[in-house]
Design a protein around this nucleic acid. Sequence first.
DNA 1: ATCTGTTGTTAGATAACACTAACAATGATT
DNA 2: AATCATTGTTAGTGTTATCTAACAACAGAT
Lengths: 248, 248
Amino acid sequence: MITAASSLVPANISSSLEDYLETIYLLVQQQGFARVKEIAHAREVKAASVSVALRRLAELDLVRYERREYIALTEQGEEAARKVLTRHRLLTRFFEEVLQMPADAASNQACAMEHSLTDEAMDRFVRFFEYLGSCPTVIESFRRCPLSLAPDKAAARKDSNCATCRAHSKVETMSLADLRPGQHGVVEHINAKGALRQRLLDMGMLPQTPIELERAGLGGDPLWIRCQGARLALRRAEASSIAIRQLP
Amino acid sequence: MITAASSLVPANISSSLEDYLETIYLLVQQQGFARVKEIAHAREVKAASVSVALRRLAELDLVRYERREYIALTEQGEEAARKVLTRHRLLTRFFEEVLQMPADAASNQACAMEHSLTDEAMDRFVRFFEYLGSCPTVIESFRRCPLSLAPDKAAARKDSNCATCRAHSKVETMSLADLRPGQHGVVEHINAKGALRQRLLDMGMLPQTPIELERAGLGGDPLWIRCQGARLALRRAEASSIAIRQLP
DNA sequence: ATCTGTTGTTAGATAACACTAACAATGATT
DNA sequence: AATCATTGTTAGTGTTATCTAACAACAGAT
């Protein structure tokens, strides 16, 4: 039985061991027990590795484990497992409900991050969710806003109820290609799709990033851009997919 | 010089090596060059470790490195470094601007996660930021909403401009302590502070989580709760800090 | 009771990453 | 030019986590 009083769980546990705890917790919850073979299967690891890990977990008093017997978490182990799982749930929900990722991708991303989410960040995430719970229109509005989501299906543009979006669509936006050599701007929106979009993002061209058109090639086609200290060359067509706000 | 065409950067590079690339990139940007000693200092690692890492990076063609000479990134190395740094910037901004964390904590959290952010998740984050850029009132509203943020300083409650918040404050909310044995609910808001709050969250008591009051102790004081498959005992005072919506 | 297939364990190898300690190169100072 | 302090390298150790291959225990079937 668990109380709300704090208990002493070993603080520095590796993400690998945390994964084992998580797996064991889920198996026990699903079928009442966990066995080496199943843990190995779930973690996509050989049974030998599980065996070793279990010994380490037992030494840390996180798992109760008689050789060749069924495996159970100790109170501490259960607490640690629940903590990781809660982070997993939280992050999955964020990637799925807020960022609108498909369920499996969201869960995978959560898996990779659940071990490094600090208590403080966790708390902030929760507050954010509490806020969204009180004001559900916020995310609903994001979901509908074709400006931001709906990567390829700009078709759904009609049913946006985001006032600023509507306003925005009227404002004449300029693109990176509209700058003249030496002029500066700030990235507002990357309209490129697929690989080009990913390339531009990777290079550092995030929203709100300062950007400069250094010079244009002969005939104005390769545009030489400066962004985050790096220089790169873009085709004019590519540059015009980057919506910016000009700086003086 | 970099073009928007895709280049072949070794895909599976460890987070440790990514950190080295990042550090080198920043040092070169700051002072024009990087040396072993400085890298070691920045990464809080001994010089010997840096030396070995540099050899590995050179083998991977990410770093150009003549023994005892200054260190420079190759084109590929620079690309990889910029990619990591962009993720760092993106996550830092998210934790700082959206989740309202202090700058250093935001950056630290970003450090821990930057290596595992998938391209897809990155893209979704960017779309989210693009949306927020178009509709800045959204986050402004979150920032002001005392329901969610302002952990201890509920004093600032007056200047919230969130319509739903105002509505919410009028709705009579019930707490976990108002349930009767056997009744179910859904967590809406955890009003507890400090360690208790963290404990409850760690146990899995996130917003929107189903919860049940199993039974009350003698005199009604320890309340036995079921949450996410786990049982726990809460004082009545503690339970009443958990706002819920009752389920039929 | 023994045989056989499944399951779990051990031992030994490998890889990545960090460390300490000893050594080598370099540049600056006397 | 010789010396010294700084800087970087190498060699050897330890830890964590994985693997393969060989071995041990058990359960059920013959």
